[in-house]
Design a protein around this nucleic acid. Sequence first.
RNA 1: GUCCCCGUAGCUCAGUGGCAGAGCAUCUGACUUUUAAUCAGAGGGCCGUUGGUUCGAUCCCAACCGGGGACACCA
Length: 503
Amino acid sequence: MTQPSITESDQIRQRRANLDELARLGVSLYPHAFARTHTIDGLVREHGEKSAEALASDRTDVRIAGRILGIRGFGKASFLVLSDGRACVQAYIRQDSLSEVDFRVYELLDFGDFVGVHGHLFRTRTNEFTIWVSRVEFLAKCLVPLPEKWHGLQDVEIRYRQRYLDLIVSPESRHVFEVRSRALAALREFLEGRGYLEVETPMMQPIAGGALARPFVTHHNALDIDLYLRIAPELYLKRLTVGGLERVFEINRNFRNEGTSTQHNPEFTMLEFYQAYSDYRELMVMTEDMLRLVAERAVGSDQVTFKGNSISLRPPFRRLSLREAVCRKAGERLGRDVTDAELRRPDSAAALAAELGVPVDPGSGPGTITVGIFESLWEASLIEPTFVYDFPTEVSPLSKQRADDPDTVERFELYVGGLEIANAFSELNDPGEQRRRFDDQLQQRRRGDEEAHRMDEDYIRALEYGLPPTAGEGVGIDRLVMLLTDSHSIRDVILFPLMKPQR
RNA sequence: GUCCCCGUAGCUCAGUGGCAGAGCAUCUGACUUUUAAUCAGAGGGCCGUUGGUUCGAUCCCAACCGGGGACACCA
C-alpha cells in the first residue's frame, strides 16, 4: 500500500513543485467555483454527433470542467482528455490560442488534475469531437499519481479501500453503482405505486430481533444501557402494521456479527415490506412483478447474465415445495423412496442426513436438518428464479403455520443465480403462539444456539392489540445488485465494504 | 473460525541463493490535429514486517500483518 502522506515519491514532489509554480504565477490553487455551460456528458449528448461543417458554420462557445485523464503533448500543442465521470471529451490546447499565463498553467498540469476550459467546438482531422481551448482555469491539484490507464486498477484491496480511485479509472465499477441506484429507485417506485409508505425504524435496539443472527453490541453512556445494532427491522415494521400502517416498507442497513464472504458483508442493505390482509402466495406474484420492473429499470432488460448463465426474470417463476424437493432429490440420490414423514421425525431425519453425507449439528431438530439437506442438495442448482416454499415451523419462529399442517409455515425463499435473494412469509399474528415460539427459541439458546431468537415481551404486547392477517418479505439488496451487474462478490456492489484497518 | 493462494518502482507485472528488471507513468530534449501519440536520453526500490538457516536471503523456513478464494453460518 502506498502512503503518500508519509513517504513522498519523486512524482509527488514533482506535482507539489508544479502546484508551487502555479502559486508563483498568481493562480488561485483551490478556487471556489467554475461556471460551466455544460457537463461533459451533456455536451457530448447535445453536440457530439454534429459534423465538422455544422460545428464550423455554427460556432458554439462552451465552458466545461473535469478531471484530466489523458495528456498527449506536442510541445506547443496538446490534447487533454477531460472526464466528468460519466463521459470524456478531448480539449485541444495550442500556444497561439492562449495567453502566456494560460499556456504556462497548461504546462504545469498533471494527469488527474481538475481543470476548466473555455473554447469552441470543432472536429479534428481524425474527426474527433474536440474543444478548441481559448482559456484554461486551474481548479484542483491531484498530488498523487493515479493508477495506470491501460491496465487500470487490478489490486482489489485498493479498489475497496480507496474506492474513489476505482471510480476514477474503472467505468464498469461506476456502472455497478449506477445500476444499484436505479434499482433502489425502481423498488421505491414500485412500492409507492402500490400505496406503500416508506418508514425508518430503530437501528439501535434493546433486543435484536426479527432474524436468527448474532448482533453487534454497543453502549449508550447517558442511559447506561447496552444496545444492539439491528439484525432486522421486522418486529418494528409489524408494530407499525398493528398501528394501522397497512403497507409499509423500509430500505436500510442490517448488521450481523458474522464472518465475511463473497456473499456476506457485516452490514448489508435490506428491503423489508409488509402488507396487511395478504398472505405469502400474494407476495410471490408481487415479487415476480417487482423483480421484473427493477431489472427493466436498472439494466433495461428482464434478462440478465450471471456467472455465465442467462437468466430470465419474466414471470412466472418456478415454485418448489421444500419438503417435496428434498424427498425428490434425496430419493434420486439414494435410489429409494424418501417420504415426507421421514423428514418430520428427529431420528429418521438425522439418519437421512447421515445417509446423504450432510453434516448435522448435534441437537438439531428435524426441521433444521431438512433445511440443511435442502441447501446441500439444491441451493447451487437454483439458477433460474425459484420460489422454495413451505418451511418447517421449527426454523421459522415468526411465520404463520399452514391451517392444515402446524408443522409447516407459510414461508418462501426466492433463489436466483444460486443466490438467496428474498425471504417472505405470512406473519404469525397469534400472540399466544408467538410466545410459545419464542419459548422454543429460548430453549435452543440454552442448548448453545447463539443465533436463536430472544424473547420480546414488547412485541408480544403489540400482537395482543391485534395484527391483521399480514404478509411480509425481505429482499437482500446487495445480492440483487450482484445479480443485476454480474458481480461475483458482494464487495463489488458495496462502495466501502468492511476491511480490517491497516497496520 | 479452518484450509489454499498472493504481497517486487506511482500503476501493471517479470525474475534470481551472489550489484534489482520490463512496459506505462515521472524528469530532460525534439515535436502546433493526436487517439495507449512518437523519437532520444535520465532518475526512481525497507523486494509486506520480524526472526531463523546460510559466507551471503527479495528468493529457503517460521511467525506476524494485509488481501483474495474455498469451506462453515447467514440474507
